[in-house]
Design a protein around this nucleic acid. Structure first.
Lengths: 142, 142
DNA sequence: TCGCAATCATTAACATGTTAAATATATTGC
DNA sequence: GCAATATATTTAACATGTTAATGATTGCGA
């Protein structure tokens, strides 16, 4: 009978821990703006891609739709994003970033970039790229 | 001014996606036993290390204590784990796996090991080990 | 030994993750 | 052009993540 791998070498646990460590400084930065990491991801994606339909936004931001619905609702209340209706297809909605949302991006971009660079440097640029590549491979497993 | 990395190459997002993909087959397996992935981690760690105090368990299972408190409470109600008090130090509690919990481990060990092996093979054993090593490095960044 | 600081764990409150059910609109087949 | 189906999103319900506040117990120092 096959043996379970030690939890010390368990990939799911390693992924959780890694994310935890990577996010800690980012969360500290965001708390000053009153944002969660998920709200930050939404702003980042909308800034990068422009207005998006919910399902596209969810893919880019790595959110499940039910979570995203709540997140976008609360962000709309704070005036960080806006929702517009699709002309022809009323099922569809388009979400876009507001000026206020854009301002938060601008305020935090430099520091966020610096945090990313620090991680990259501490890990070593090569290992960093390798890591991203392998994580990418995990996406098309099935 | 530093540039934000594209969300396509964002480490946090890549980590989330990777975990999502890795966990999908495991969650399918566990749903038949009515377990969440976190409850499974608790059983795995207790099976591997024997009875543990809450803070030690949390470290091994990559859970925050408040989450773990709730998880262990519900698992105790289902009879999967038990709590014993420390003789001398009443602050301390020890959590251990029950026979019923052990049975769930036994029932799922083979399949879980197979899932882990599949991921390892699809990724290639070398890349798999490299991934775990780099993720480990991320833990001691600070 | 009394009280105070330190440690560990739980509770509280709110945000998100997850799956299933419900809703709303479009499209297709007849 | 209407019913059945398909698609896109939201709601609902419950579990977990996250931070701050609270509680409980020990150990230490005056």
């Amino acid at each position: 009978m096959k043996q379970l791998p030690s939890t010390q070498r368990s990939l799911p646990i390693a992924l959780i821990r890694a994310r935890e460590n990577v996010m800690t400084p980012i969360r500290q930065m965001l708390s000053e703006s009153g944002l969660t990491e998920q709200q930050w991801r939404v702003l980042r994606v909308l800034d990068e891609h422009g207005a998006l339909e919910p399902s596209q936004l969810a893919k880019h931001a790595a959110l499940l739709l039910p979570s995203q619905t709540r997140i976008v609702q609360s962000m709309a209340q704070k005036g960080l994003v806006e929702r517009r209706e699709h002309r022809n297809d009323r099922r569809r909605t388009v979400i876009e970033i507001t000026h206020a949302g854009q301002a938060i991006i601008n305020d935090n971009a430099a520091k966020a970039a610096e945090i990313a660079t620090q991680i990259r440097d501490k890990l070593g640029p090569r290992r960093f790229e390798t890591l991203l590549d392998i994580l990418d491979d995990l996406r098309d497993l099935e």
